[in-house]
Design a protein around this nucleic acid. Sequence first.
DNA 1: CATGAATGAGCGTTCATTCAT
DNA 2: TATGAATGAACGCTCATTCAT
Lengths: 205, 205, 205, 205
Amino acid sequence: MRSDEMDRPRTFTEEARRAQIMRCAIEALAELGFSGSSLAEIARRAGVSKGVVSYYFAGKDELLGQVLFDVYARAGAAIAERIGHANDPAVVIRGYLEANLSFLAENLADIRAVVEIAANARSPDGSLRFAVPGEDPVLAHLQSLLQAGKDTGRFGEVDSRSMAVLIRGAIDTASGRLVGDPAFDLEAYTRQLVDVVDLALRPAT
Amino acid sequence: MRSDEMDRPRTFTEEARRAQIMRCAIEALAELGFSGSSLAEIARRAGVSKGVVSYYFAGKDELLGQVLFDVYARAGAAIAERIGHANDPAVVIRGYLEANLSFLAENLADIRAVVEIAANARSPDGSLRFAVPGEDPVLAHLQSLLQAGKDTGRFGEVDSRSMAVLIRGAIDTASGRLVGDPAFDLEAYTRQLVDVVDLALRPAT
Amino acid sequence: MRSDEMDRPRTFTEEARRAQIMRCAIEALAELGFSGSSLAEIARRAGVSKGVVSYYFAGKDELLGQVLFDVYARAGAAIAERIGHANDPAVVIRGYLEANLSFLAENLADIRAVVEIAANARSPDGSLRFAVPGEDPVLAHLQSLLQAGKDTGRFGEVDSRSMAVLIRGAIDTASGRLVGDPAFDLEAYTRQLVDVVDLALRPAT
Amino acid sequence: MRSDEMDRPRTFTEEARRAQIMRCAIEALAELGFSGSSLAEIARRAGVSKGVVSYYFAGKDELLGQVLFDVYARAGAAIAERIGHANDPAVVIRGYLEANLSFLAENLADIRAVVEIAANARSPDGSLRFAVPGEDPVLAHLQSLLQAGKDTGRFGEVDSRSMAVLIRGAIDTASGRLVGDPAFDLEAYTRQLVDVVDLALRPAT
DNA sequence: CATGAATGAGCGTTCATTCAT
DNA sequence: TATGAATGAACGCTCATTCAT
């Protein structure tokens, strides 16, 4: 099938199976972590034999890479849609924060799966399999949003790089809270983060 | 050996061996990640046979748990010493942030090891092996520091829980940056974080 | 399909498909060796799905057996034609050698495929799948040619069995040389073999 | 153990285990062929678990390579000893033939194992794992023996290369006969081969 | 105390085969 | 006829653990 002929387009049912397997992989990763998500476990959740996974994906790497790519794409689309029409940098940043945190909450398993993959998948040489060699694009994007605000005078004189790191940290930590901390109040957290960032970016009066 | 007779105190040489093995485990975890840190690899780094590790620790779980405990204890001590004598909550928080980030920078391998363990070590049932069942003590401690400031009127009306989560996220993300992002400027980041938190906690005028 | 209804003769198109698949099997065996010649690889070369191979052949064994049979038959025909009209045993033997070696050179892939199959195909019990249980017919044939020469006094008192084995060895080894030894000179080798055999068979003076 | 520390010399018991495993590998290869000689089968014959084989050899490749090397070394030593003191090229060649054929007969399983390995073991890229890149050293050695005879005028004007190929073919084919052809008479075959080669190399009178 | 030897389960992957469509 | 989907067993290999010495 797929692994044999690289150029043939995928049929509908083929895509459906791939999606199903990816869904099961995401669930396994979210529940059992990277090392618990063997092909056997993923296949078990999909109700198929181990071979089926190898049949629809060239290997575990392709499966994990596809999951990574898909979730990233969906997250990017959700965030882009949320801040698409805004001009005011402050509104953009607010939208960025809210979109990130709500995507997190609504796609918790996906996010956890992505974190497991990105942090654990390794090449045979021991290096992280899905580490982007140069600049972290997610961080760079956020930094550019901040810089745009500074350039237009809408934001004060913050260190845009440090602020980007700080904000990403504040966002990323939320997924950890959403799991296993029933007391975590995402709405309150979102409001607080929006306030803090708003305050931090406000130009000196 | 040790794991069989729980009550006998450990001799000095025993503790030395345990410490040596834990040090090697930390190095392996920091360099190779969780899955690359097999007992064989740890034993190799310690220059001993695999059996020795099993001899001084009841199993891999006990070794990892001990590493986790030790690093936590050292970090807690470093932070407590830094903020020990301060009374002003703002000074306490500032000390907390600086102590955390400098401990991070000066004990990077230990921190990375702890992150690897906490995020990856699992029980047979798939649940995180070292997840504390109830309240996260680290988070609770920070929250209590913030609450103290609120109670004395020194801080404004922030949501102390959300702020604690935010701050922890901002701190924890720094270790990821310190590794593999050569452009990361810890001093600038520390200043920025201190400023942001100071601003956020300042009472409304 | 075919393997279910043993008595129905094969249609023309059926035979064509079988021949095509066998051709692709030969190419795969010659290029990739026995273990590299999976049904998937053979089907890929034939531009059909894996199922087709199973459809036209009862199993991999039947396919390989058929390849073996076909190449043997073609080789036998080529040799028979070459020595068909000769009466003098010396001329017959010379023709046999020349026919064998030239068939080898002109059907190298086929020969290599046959060697791979004969040496590697095994029954579930581990025994060679295509080993003829009794007397090797190829060897017996050559021996009979030699014996005929002895009986008519045209050849000397050689051990016809040993000579047959020797000659077959000298022929069979040539295919190995033709592949991967670019310096191998088949013409020179043929002349040399013909001379050696002629000398060996010449009656004592 | 061995796979962990590359420089430590092997203990006696370690060598004994390795030798035992190699012996079982040779038996499996001789009886079941390359594809039938899985680590599981070899371990089963050795009466140990699968892991033991991986414990004493870095991988299947090392095991097979070691078998290849050992048998080659033993064969080379046996042949060298047999022809060591001879000066007359004709005597050397005669010794070479007799030594080869008797080593074959007395180490049949080893030879068959070597043939299986050399013909089937492949690298991941599909190329033969143990193919020597340049000239076949076995063939080159024999050719040099023949050339020496020609150079001293002891042999006639044969094509030394072709004769070497012919003789190797005649030798190699014997192992195939020794297995499964109970009628094969090695002594008669050796005499015949010696005679044929002697005749072929004799200078024109 | 420490080792080296051995186990057994599980890993990702390959492959001949079967079968509904 | 021919396909693509699915299976299940076997493969080489890794690893935490156990144990006699």
